[in-house]
Design a protein around this nucleic acid. Structure first.
Length: 889
RNA sequence: GCGGAUGUGGUGAAAUUGGUAGACACGCUAGACUUAGGAUCUAGUGCCGAGAGGUGUGCGGGUUCGAGUCCCUCCAUCCGCACCA
C-alpha cells in the first residue's frame, strides 16, 4: 500500500473538525503562547501559493509550542471591510456583504485543506456588526479622551474639563498644549470657560480629543472620491488603483497619533522586530531636535515662526521662506507684489502631489515685498514664498541659511539672494560652489557664538534664543495625525451624529451603529458619501449621522484583542482573558505594513493601556516578516503586426512584442501550442516559428504574482497532486522564511518522495505496518537524538528550511539502518507533526496511540549521552594553547 | 541623497558562538531493476587537472594559529523613504 495522502488528509481534517481538536481555552495552570498571523483581506481571487507561506510557518511554530507544553492561542479571521468588494458592488449592484461572504467561504476552504491548527471558534470578521460594534466603542474611547502631556498619557476628557473649569487655559497651563493645538487656540480663564455655551466648550474640547474633527490638509483622490492616509499614497498616486492624489484642505475625522510620537519611538526599543521595520517607523515618526524662532514682521503685528535644527546658523539667515499654503502669505504680501504672489500660490496649489514630487529640482518662488527683522541683529530680511517649503512640516516656514543648507543655497543662487557664511568648514571646501551642510566646523560672523564648534554652538544658540524670548527649544516630528474618515460605503460607520452642526458621540448602549442599506454604492449627486443615500437613517429619527466611514486600518488595529474573547457581548474582551493571553508573542506577516497597520495598532494599544483597559503597551512582541513569493511569468513573442509567434532563441531576428502566456500552458519552458490557440480567441489562428526540434520555447521573468500576469499558482492544484503535507514542507524547504523568492515547483518531488520514504519506514511492500518492540539500536538512538537537538534549534530560530532538511537526513539514516523500532519511530512522528500534521496523525495511530493526540505530546527529549560516542573532537589551538572542540557528527 | 537588506556550485540553499565550506534537495552523468513511472536502488557531481595536487564564499585590503562569518574600502542587486529645514 502506498502513501495515499488524499485519503489520509481528508480523513484527518474531518476528525480535527469533528473533535474540535484545536479549540483552546484560558488555563491558568499552563503558560500561554500567542501566535498570530496578519489576517487576510478576502479578495475574489482566492489564495495563491504566497499567502499560506506565513500561515504554514505560524502553524508549525504553534504546534511546536504546544508540544512544548504551552497553551497556544492561534486564531484566524478576516479583514473584511475594504475597497475591492465595494468597487465590485458599484459595478454589479451586489451587496459587498454578499461577495465578502463568498470570498471568505473560498478562503476558508483553501485554508482547511492545508490542515492548519487554527481555533476557528475564535474567528473574527471586521465587517461583522458584533465585531465593529467594538471598533466603534474604541472610537468613542478615543473621542472621549485627550492626551495629557503632564502625565504623558491619555485621560478621560472629564479631567480636561475639570482643569478648564478650575484654571482655564492660560500660560500657566500652556504645557498641556502640543503641536497644532498651540497655533489655533485662544486663552480663556476658568470663569470664561464656565460661562461658555455647550457649543463653545465642545469646540474647544475638539482640539484635544484623540479622535477629532478638524481641518487638515488631506490626500484627496478625485478618482475614488475619498481621502487617503499618507501610507496609502505611494509616489503621489493611490496605493490601490494608482489614481492621482492631490492635497486639499478638508474637515475630517482624524486620530491624534502625533501625541504619541515619542512613546511610539521609545516603545520600539522594547520590541523584537527587524531593524529595517523599526527603522521605517523611526523614519516615519521623524523626530528632530532644534528650536522654533520667531521673526517679527516689519511694519505689522505678529511674527513668522520657523523651525530649525540648526539654530547655530541663525546669524547666517538671509531670507525667510513660507510655504505657498502658509496662512501669513496673504497678510505679508504688499500691494505691488500681490498679483505675482497670488499667481504663484495658485500654481503651486494646483499642482498635484505627483507633479510637485516629480520635479523637485525646479526652483521656484516669489518675493512677498515684506520683511522680517532678525531677532538678534534687527537686520531686515526679505520674506519669500517657495514650494520647497512644505506646509505640513514644522511651522511651514523656514529661516533660510544658504551658506549651510543645500535647498536654501539653490534658492539663493537662483534668485540672486545674499549668501552669508557663518561656519568655517572643518576641511578644505569650496563655499563658492555649494553649501557646507555638515554639522562640523567653527562658528564665525555670529556675535555671541563666534569661535564655538557647531556641536557646542547649537545648545548655546538655543539658550540665547530662549533667554531673549525669541523662541524655544523644540522637538519636531514628521508624523502627521492620521485621517480617519473615508467617503465610502463598505466600512464601519462612525458613531457620531450632528445636532446644530455640533458632533455628538453615541452612547455605548447605542452601539453598534449598523451600516444602513443604500440604493447605490456611489456618492450622491452633491458629492456626499454613499451613506447619505440611506433613507431615514437618522439619530432618533431627527439628527444626521456622520456620513463617512472608518478607514481599512480601524478594524485591524485591535483584532488581536478580540481573538482573546471573541464572543464577549459586554466588552471588547474581558480583563481576565486579556490579562491571561496578553501580548502577541509571535506575529507573522508581510513587511509592507511597516508604517501603516503596525503603527496604528501600536497607537491604539497604547491608548487602551492608558485608559486602563489592557495591561500591556505594545501589541506584538516578536515579529517575523515572511518574504514575498514571486511568480515566474512566461512570455511568447508576437512578431509585430502579425499573428505569428517566434520561439525564444529566434526572437532576435524579428521585431517582437512579449505577451504573457498562462503558466498552465507552459511545461518546462515549452508551450502547449494547441492549448495556447484555444486559450483566447484572438490566438486561434496563431502561427508559430519553433525551435529545430519543433517545440516553442517561452521566455521567463520573475514578477509579482498576479492574475493579470497569468503567473498565479494556486495551492489547490498542488495539494491535489502532492498533498497538503508535501506543499507545507516544500514551502518551508524553499529557503529562509524572510527572504523573497520566485515560486518554482521543480524541487517539490524531492519533498514528496521524502514523505513516501517516511511512509515506507513504517510499512512493508504489502502495506503491512512494521514496528518492532524491544531495545532500540544504539546507532538509531544516536541519529534520533542528533535530530531532536537540531530540529529543536531550527524551530527556536525559525529556520524551518533547515528543519525540514535535518528531518530528511534522519529518515535517510534510519532507512539505511532499517530501523523500525517502536520508541524511535514514536519520537520521530512527534517531531514531524508540526511540519506534516496529516501523515503524523496517521502514523501515530498506526503506532497504537489515541487519534488526535500527537500534537499535544511532549517534544522528544534530547539525550546527550548518545551523542558523546558519536561525536568527534578535533584540536584547536587558541592563543597558543591547544584545546579540544567537540562536534556532533 | 538617506536608511535597510542581500551577494556561497548548473539551481534552491546549509554552515547556530570565528573552527572540516557547499549539509539537504533539485538537476545532470553512468549503471541496476522494471510490461515505461513524475517509481525505486547504486555510484558520481564546486572549479582546474589524467593524476598527485592546486584553487574556491562579489572585488581589494586588514585582524587572527584559523575568516563565508569580525573590521575597513569599493562594486552589484533588491526593498523602503525622500525638498523634513
Amino acid at each position: 500500500m502506498e502513501y495515499d495522502f488524499r485519503e489520509i488528509e481528508a480523513r484527518w481534517q474531518k476528525f480535527w473538525s469533528e473533535h474540535a481538536t484545536f479549540k483552546v481555552a484560558k488555563d491558568a495552570s499552563r503558560k500561554k503562547y500567542y501566535v498570530l498571523d496578519m489576517f487576510p483581506y478576502p479578495s475574489g481571487a482566492g489564495l495563491h501559493v504566497g499567502h499560506p507561506l506565513g500561515y504554514i510557518a505560524s502553524d508549525i511554530f504553534s504546534r511546536y509550542k504546544r508540544l512544548k507544553g504551552f497553551n497556544v492561542l492561534h486564531p484566524m479571521g478576516y479583514d473584511s471591510f475594504g475597497l475591492p468588494a465595494e468597487q465590485y458592488a458599484i459595478q454589479t449592484g451586489q451587496h459587498p456583504a454578499l461577495t465578502t461572504e463568498q470570498n471568505i467561504a473560498r478562503y476558508r476552504q483553501q485554508m482547511d485543506q492545508l490542515g492548519f491548527c487554527f481555533d476557528w471558534e475564535r474567528e473574527v470578521r471586521t465587517s461583522d456588526s458584533t465585531y465593529y460594534r467594538w471598533t466603534q466603542w474604541i472610537f468613542l474611547e478615543l473621542f472621549n479622551s485627550w492626551y495629557n502631556p503632564r502625565t504623558d498619557k491619555a485621560e478621560p476628557i472629564e479631567t480636561l474639563v475639570k482643569l478648564f473649569s478650575e484654571e482655564g487655559l492660560n500660560l500657566a497651563v500652556s504645557d498641556i498644549l502640543t503641536g497644532d493645538i498651540e497655533k489655533e487656540l485662544h486663552t480663556f480663564s476658568a470663569k470664561e470657560w464656565n460661562a461658555f455655551t455647550e457649543a463653545q466648550k465642545r469646540e474647544v474640547l475638539m482640539h484635544f480629543r484623540l479622535a477629532y474633527l478638524g481641518e487638515a490638509y488631506v490626500n484627496w483622490c478625485p478618482a475614488m472620491g475619498t481621502v487617503l492616509a499618507n501610507d496609502e499614497v505611494i509616489n503621489g498616486v493611490s496605493e490601490r488603483g494608482g489614481h492621482p492624489v492631490e492635497r486639499k484642505l478638508l474637515k475630517q475625522w482624524s486620530m491624534r497619533i502625533t501625541a504619541y510620537s515619542q512613546r511610539l519611538l521609545d516603545g520600539l526599543e522594547t520590541l523584537d522586530w527587524t531593524e529595517s521595520i523599526k527603522e521605517s517607523q523611526r523614519n516615519w515618526i521623524g523626530r528632530s531636535e532644534g528650536a522654533s524662532v520667531r521673526f517679527p514682521i516689519q511694519g505689522l503685528e505678529g511674527s513668522i515662526e520657523v523651525f530649525t535644527t540648526r539654530p547655530d546658523t541663525v546669524f547666517g539667515v538671509s531670507f525667510v521662506t513660507l510655504a505657498p499654503e502658509h496662512e501669513l502669505v496673504a497678510k505679508v504680501t504688499t500691494a505691488d507684489r500681490r498679483d505675482d504672489v497670488e499667481a504663484y500660490v495658485n500654481t503651486a496649489k494646483n499642482r498635484s502631489e505627483r507633479e510637485r514630487m516629480a520635479d523637485v529640482n525646479t526652483i521656484s518662488g516669489v518675493f512677498t515685498g515684506s520683511y522680517v527683522s532678525h531677532p538678534f541683529t534687527g537686520q531686515l530680511i526679505p520674506i519669500w514664498v517657495g514650494d520647497y517649503v512644505l506646509v505640513g512640516y514644522g511651522t511651514g516656514a523656514v529661516m533660510a541659511v544658504p551658506a549651510h543648507d543645500e535647498r536654501d543655497y539653490k534658492f539663493a543662487m537662483h534668485f540672486g539672494l545674499p549668501i552669508k557664511q557663518v561656519i568655517e568648514p572643518s576641511r578644505e571646501f569650496d563655499l563658492q560652489k555649494e553649501a557646507w551642510t555638515e554639522k562640523e566646523g567653527k562658528v564665525i560672523n555670529s556675535d555671541i557664538l563666534n569661535g564655538l564648534e557647531v556641536k557646542k554652538a547649537i545648545p548655546r544658540a538655543i539658550d540665547a534664543i530662549e533667554k531673549h524670548g525669541f523662541g524655544k527649544r523644540r522637538i519636531n516630528y514628521r508624523l502627521r495625525d492620521a485621517v480617519f474618515g473615508r467617503q465610502r460605503y463598505w466600512g464601519e460607520p462612525i458613531p457620531i451624529y450632528y445636532k446644530d452642526g455640533i458632533p455628538y458621540a453615541l452612547s455605548v448602549e447605542e452601539l453598534p451603529l449598523t451600516l444602513p442599506e443604500v440604493d447605490k454604492y456611489l456618492p450622491t449627486e452633491d458629492g456626499e458619501p454613499p451613506l447619505a443615500r440611506a433613507a431615514d437613517w437618522k439619530y432618533q429619527g431627527i439628527y444626521e449621522y456622520e456620513h463617512s466611514t472608518m478607514p481599512g486600518w480601524a478594524g485591524s488595529s485591535w483584532y488581536f484583542l478580540r481573538y482573546m474573547d471573541p464572543q464577549n457581548s459586554s466588552s471588547f474582551a474581558s480583563k481576565e482573558e486579556t490579562a491571561y493571553w496578553n501580548q502577541v508573542d509571535l506575529y507573522i506577516g508581510g513587511a509592507e505594513h511597516a508604517t501603516g497597520h503596525l503603527l496604528y495598532s501600536r497607537f491604539w494599544t497604547k491608548v487602551m493601556f492608558d485608559l486602563g483597559h489592557i495591561s500591556f503597551q505594545e501589541p506584538f512582541q516578536k515579529m517575523i516578516n515572511q518574504g514575498m513569493i514571486l511568480g515566474k511569468s512566461s512570455f511568447v513573442y508576437r512578431i509585430n503586426s502579425s499573428n505569428s509567434f517566434v520561439t525564444f532563441s529566434k526572437k532576435g531576428d524579428f521585431e517582437t512584442t512579449p505577451i504573457h502566456a498562462d503558466i498552465s500552458l507552459v511545461d518546462n519552458g515549452k508551450l502547449d501550442i494547441e492549448g495556447f490557440r484555444k486559450w483566447r480567441p484572438e490566438f486561434g489562428g496563431a502561427e508559430f516559428i519553433c525551435e529545430e526540434d519543433g517545440s516553442y520555447v517561452c521566455g521567463t521573468e520573475v514578477e509579482k504574482m498576479s492574475k493579470s500576469k497569468y503567473n498565479v499558482q494556486t495551492p489547490d492544484e498542488l495539494v491535489e497532486k502532492f498533498g497538503a503535507d508535501t506543499l507545507r514542507m516544500y514551502e518551508m524547504f524553499l529557503g529562509p522564511l524572510e527572504q523573497s523568492k520566485p515560486w518554482d515547483t521543480k524541487g517539490i518531488n524531492g519533498v514528496h518522495n521524502f514523505l513516501r520514504k517516511l511512509w515506507r519506514l513504517f510499512h512493508d511492500q504489502n502495506g503491512n505496518v512494521i514496528v518492532e518492540n524491544g531495545e532500540s539500536p544504539k546507532e538509531a538512538l544516536k541519529t534520533l537524538h542528533k535530530t531532536i537537538k537540531k530540529m529543536q534549534d531550527d524551530l527556536e530560530r525559525f529556520s524551518f528550511n533547515t528543519g525540514v532538511s535535518n528531518f530528511m537526513i534522519c529518515v535517510n539514516e534510519l532507512t539505511d539502518l532499517k530501523c523500525h523500532n517502536h520508541s524511535v519511530l514514536k519520537e520521530l512522528v512527534i517531531m514531524l507533526s508540526p511540519y506534516a500534521p496529516h501523515i503524523s496523525e496517521e502514523l501515530w495511530t498506526k503506532l497504537g496511540y489515541e487519534a488526535g493526540t500527537v500534537g499535544i505530546q511532549q517534544f522528544p527529549a534530547f539525550n546527550e549521552s548518545f551523542l558523546v560516542e558519536s561525536s568527534f573532537a578535533y584540536p584547536v589551538s587558541f592563543n597558543g594553547k591547544m584545546r579540544f572542540k567537540a562536534e556532533l557528527s
